[in-house]
């Protein structure tokens, strides 16, 4: 069980995130793991807006926001400066999936190639939530967003999620991990490991957005769990480019995850899109094979 520190939160109450916000929980957990000796670099996005309207900052550690797409480059400069000054703070980028998968790729690629001693954490809520739920490179196949709406001729987002962890592992990142806010202890452990690993490390944390995905705020944790239990999200670690550990599950059919969210409702109503759901199931099956996540029952093994 994690230590509970209700009175000395480094990410403070009073922020303006939606009730039940997954990213807000991610921010709290990141600072719990990282502690006070941390400098946070933020991108423009939902978290930046809900946590820092002047002068009401929710951040108890040094925090800087410059632009949408340059957090990794700003962090590069901060890391170089504190190294030059002989200081010890850890530099962490906390950025959304739009800032990470799309507009910020150039800066991220550069920072990872140079292997600055930074930890880049993408809170992945699978669309541009700040501007009203537009698709990003992290939006899953068939999710309906305001720029990939389901319609008479469309089943929603046309492409599956970009595999960013592998792209960054291919840069030579010493530690890459995926995590979920629904497994807080695991996430905290991964953040601790990343910040204590020299070099540029990457964590992509699944952070369900009740507003953007369309579910009840009380379900944020449950939805994140379903993503893992269906195999559509895999929690794993890559050390020096090799998958070291992936969370095993007794898999549930993907319908359970999809049905629980408004963004996938068009796959079921007015008539079930069986073929399309089968495609998504196949993606989960492929994940299960690639990361070996299925817990096999004894009879099955025989």
């Amino acid at each position: 069980m994690m230590q509970v520190e209700g009175k000395c939160e480094l990410f403070e109450a009073g922020h303006r995130a939606c009730a039940g916000c997954g990213p807000a929980l991610a921010a709290r957990l990141i600072l719990k793991a990282a502690g006070e000796n941390t400098i946070v670099v933020a991108s423009t996005g939902c978290m930046e807006v809900f946590s820092t309207p002047y002068p009401e900052t929710a951040w108890g550690v040094p925090w800087i926001h410059s632009l949408f797409e340059n957090a990794a480059a700003v962090a590069s400069g901060i890391e170089a400066a504190i190294k030059q000054q002989g200081r010890s703070e850890k530099v962490i980028c906390v950025c959304g999936d739009g800032a990470t998968f799309d507009i910020g790729m150039l800066c991220i690629s550069g920072a990872f190639e140079r292997n600055h001693d930074i930890t880049y954490i993408c809170y992945d809520n699978e669309a541009y939530m700040n501007t009203g739920i537009q698709r990003s490179g992290a939006t899953p196949l068939d999710a309906s967003t305001t720029t990939s709406p389901a319609g008479k001729c469309s089943l929603g987002n046309k492409r599956p999620k970009k595999d960013l962890p592998r792209i960054l592992a291919a840069h030579g990142a010493p530690y890459v991990a995926t995590a979920s806010i629904s497994y807080p202890a695991d996430f905290v452990k991964k953040v601790e490991r990343a910040i204590n690993t020299p070099g540029a490390c990457y964590i992509q944390v699944h952070a369900p957005c009740c507003t953007g995905w369309g579910f009840d705020p009380g379900q944020t944790i449950a939805i994140g769990k379903l993503a893992i239990e269906t195999g559509l999200w895999v929690n794993y670690e890559m050390v020096d480019g090799v998958v070291a550990k992936a969370k095993k599950v007794r898999r549930k059919p993907v319908e359970e995850y999809l049905k629980a969210q408004k963004r996938f409702q068009h796959l079921f109503k007015p008539t079930p899109k069986t073929e399309e759901i089968a495609k998504i199931q196949a993606m989960a099956d492929a994940n299960a094979t690639a990361y070996n996540i299925d817990i096999k029952l004894k009879q099955e093994r025989q």
């Binding site: 009073g14 922020h15 900052t57």
Partner: peptide
Amino acid sequence: ARPGKARR
């Protein structure tokens, strides 16, 4: 801004 102000 310095920390602590969100709590307002």
